[in-house]
Amino acid sequence: MNKKNKFRNRIKVKRSKYVLLTVSFILLIVSSFIVSGCSTDENQTVAQFTELIWADEFDVDGAPNPNNWGYDIGTGFNGWGNNELQYYTDRPENVVVQNGILIITAREESFQGSNYTSARLKTKGKFSRKYGRFEARIWLPSGKGLWPAFWMLGNNIEEELDTDLSTLQWPFCGEIDIMENAGSKPTIISGAIHGPGWSGGSPILKEYDLGNDRVDSGFHIYGIEWGPDYVNFYVDDVLYKQITPDDLPSNPFPEFYGDVFTDPVELEEYETTWNKWVYDQPFYMLLNLAVGGLFDGPPNAETVFPQTMLVDYVRVYKNEFDNN
């Protein structure tokens, strides 16, 4: 067993104790950590990559194209790790294509022990890509407790307990949140990355305020342009954040594993493993509409159901400066 595998085994042993650190924990974001300032290159234009390599325009009514989309079903562990309240289904009541629009509907109903239903789509196993421009045109829902997201996970994520050494558990696989919105803040969205040392409640996150507009009164384009050593986040024609390896914490000390390494060799390995830019491998995309959870708390008496998240298209453009 080489050192890497030894280290990986160590992680697996610890996982049973820190079971929260599973893929279901991915979207845990408490916005207490907001990167101040913005290192965006002001000369940068929003959309540089124009060679379309994958798209779903949702032109066929009915269930979403099964060649593009699969589903997460159920409640995950502890509401997908975030105390989310919905039961995810692939029923047409929760996810359907109509008139050129993907409609994800969150409903208030008793279903399989949950009080809400909704849907979470993913391209895992169908499409993944390293680098490029990933964008979607979305009309977001409205109301406290709604938590829509358009996001990505490293394709090498380990979702099951296994011994496949080619997979990694979250957050080592990496996560890029292209767009998240707390329903109680109708003018604000955020983009973020999660990785080893900056995850859960401490992602590298940037909010963007639409100001004189709302996410729930019309479509907006939410996207990233991603290349070696950077991820650019944009809304419509505004580039609002660039994240690079320089933004990573200089000395991460994750609470979950920080106390287990007494061997200096292991400690060094641990530190180099954690403080690592993991956005250099294929990622797949997810679209979901959560209800409740740690991002915006539960719905309140004024929240109206059903609520819909309307997706006009999802498009991926090739990073023209990277021939992968």
Partner: peptide, 10 residues
């Protein structure tokens, strides 16, 4: 004012 961010009329 035209605030632009008033929505969801009920």
């Amino acid at each position: 004012e035209k605030l632009g961010n008033i929505g969801q009329p009920r």
